[in-house]
């Protein structure tokens, strides 16, 4: 069956162009070829591109993967740094909060006349240097107080006698003790003077 159909189709082979057609073929083609540039012999560097395109593609791909990896690694590093920073901030915040709470609780215990523990600040001042003058220790106390408590010590000094100040006469620390009436005015005066110095920027640690 295939042979029959093939035989029929092969009748197409009998179809021919005009006799003179192929005689003029070459001439016609030559006239067209005259306008065509010389055959592209592969010499130019640009022709190397297709031949080695797979190499260039590979290199490009590797470069992209490397860059992607680099960016990813950098992001991870930044994230870990941010995490560490947050952790540090959190621990500092926790430490400061606990410190503040401790100071506050000690302060309130003093105010209510409860069992007075040695306050942290006093401890620190007391332990810092016994040789230092009381004045410089008071200055440091104010610094700590201001730094950790965040309130204006002047207010406390004015409204309450339960404050941590040094009496100028006795040259001792008064830690949450109720001041004698006679001492109160002296204390307030000294405190006001110190706070004023502090607010004017003259406050300094020794």
């Amino acid at each position: 069956m295939n042979k029959e159909i093939d035989k029929l189709i092969k009748l197409k082979l009998e179809e021919k162009p005009p006799k003179e057609y192929f005689e003029n073929y070459r001439r016609n083609l030559e006239s067209k070829l005259a306008g065509v540039t010389a055959p592209g012999k592969i010499n130019g560097s640009y022709n190397l591109l297709p031949r080695f395109s797979f190499v260039f593609n590979g290199v490009l791909l590797a470069l992209l993967i490397f860059l992607g990896g680099l960016i990813y690694a950098q992001n991870q590093q930044i994230k870990s740094l941010q995490f560490t920073q947050e952790e540090t901030q959190n621990s500092i915040y926790k430490y400061l909060s606990s410190l503040r709470m401790r100071i506050e609780s000690e302060m309130s215990a003093d105010k209510t006349g409860g069992n007075v523990q040695t306050p942290l600040i006093y401890n620190r001042i007391g332990q810092v240097n016994k040789k230092r003058s009381a004045d410089s220790q008071f200055t440091e106390f104010l610094g700590y107080y201001y730094k950790f408590y965040g309130a204006n010590p002047l207010e406390i000094g004015r409204n309450s006698s339960d404050i941590f100040v040094r009496s100028p006469e006795s040259d001792r620390f008064l830690m949450g003790q109720k001041l004698e009436k006679s001492e109160e005015n002296d204390v307030k005066l000294v405190l006001s003077a110190k706070i004023k110095t502090f607010e004017e920027g003259g406050f300094s640690y020794e």
Binding site: L29, L33, P39, G40
Partner: peptide, 17 residues
């Protein structure tokens, strides 16, 4: 006619490949 000539021209142009 056109296509055969076009084929020869194309072959000539790309014979380097």
């Amino acid at each position: 006619d056109d296509l055969s000539q076009e084929a020869f021209i194309k072959a000539y142009q790309s014979i380097g490949s």
